[in-house]
């Protein structure tokens, strides 16, 4: 098992947002975490990335549980180490690209901890092959990109950290259906080339088509789990997340 989250509990002030959730991700898998607004999906990813509790602005605290990755508890590490030491990258909710940096600078910043210059160049070429639009706009400031291009940049940036595990927080948000299909197609390719993916989505339809397995998160509890096909066929999931 690559990642195992056990009994994870997270608080915001007096409000408990995660009530002891457990799930796991195997090497090479695409696992999806689906759930409605406020279910705790972003909280889960931010906790794995150790942004909670280290980024004070987010205001969360871990009050119990463990996050075991390759046999080590991530809760003992700082946010940058999760990326540089363990190779867990994240495409955060709302993309959060650096609008004041050029596209190229955004991508290069993601290689901050890397020393393998030759491989960095190859990875940059690969990102530009996957997203030719980013190459055309490489000297443009991030904030001048369209929403879809910003999402491409956010995924490209995560690729440049050369993570083994990529966490994605609602990459479909605010994108036209065509673009969503493109991005999901890309995720499939990235996965086929060896990156494990944990995908958080409200768009359960697309997510369950792409993923191997999934979990359903409801107000801080995991209420269902199964293979993607099982979940897609589940009447409750159909009713709550698949619009029928």
């Amino acid at each position: 098992m690559l990642l195992e989250v056990k009994d994870l509990r997270v608080n915001y002030g007096n409000i408990e947002a995660l009530h002891g959730i457990s799930f796991s991700v195997d090497e090479g898998e695409i696992v999806t975490l689906i759930g409605a607004n406020g279910a705790g999906k972003s909280t889960t990813l931010m906790t794995i990335s150790r942004q909670i509790p280290h980024v004070a602005e987010l205001g969360g605290k871990v009050i119990g549980g463990s996050i075991i990755y390759q046999g080590e508890d991530l809760l003992q590490y700082e946010p940058h180490q999760v990326v540089s030491k363990f190779g867990i990258s994240q495409v955060p909710e709302g993309r959060r690209i650096f609008g004041n940096l050029s596209v190229l600078e955004n991508l290069m910043l993601a290689t901050y901890a890397r020393k393998d210059k030759a491989q960095v160049r190859k990875d940059l070429k690969r990102v530009f092959e996957i997203f030719p639009r980013l190459e055309e706009r490489k000297h443009q400031r991030g904030e001048t990109l369209s929403g879809g291009e910003q999402q491409m940049l956010a995924v490209g940036r995560a690729l440049m950290t050369r993570g083994r595990l990529m966490l994605l927080d609602e990459p479909s948000m605010g994108l036209a259906p065509v673009l969503v299909r493109d991005i999901f197609e890309t995720l499939k390719e990235i996965n086929a080339q060896g990156t494990t993916i944990l995908l958080v989505e409200q768009n359960a339809n697309m997510a369950l088509k792409l993923a191997h397995r999934g979990y359903v998160l409801e107000t801080g509890n995991i209420v269902l789990e199964g293979t993607a096909a099982e979940l897609a066929a589940n009447p409750e999931v159909k009713k709550a997340y698949l619009g029928g």
Partner: peptide, 13 residues
């Protein structure tokens, strides 16, 4: 520009 996203790049803030 965005302090929250920086550690996600592997940068020690």
């Amino acid at each position: 520009y965005d302090k929250v996203a920086v550690p996600l790049m592997g940068v020690p803030v």
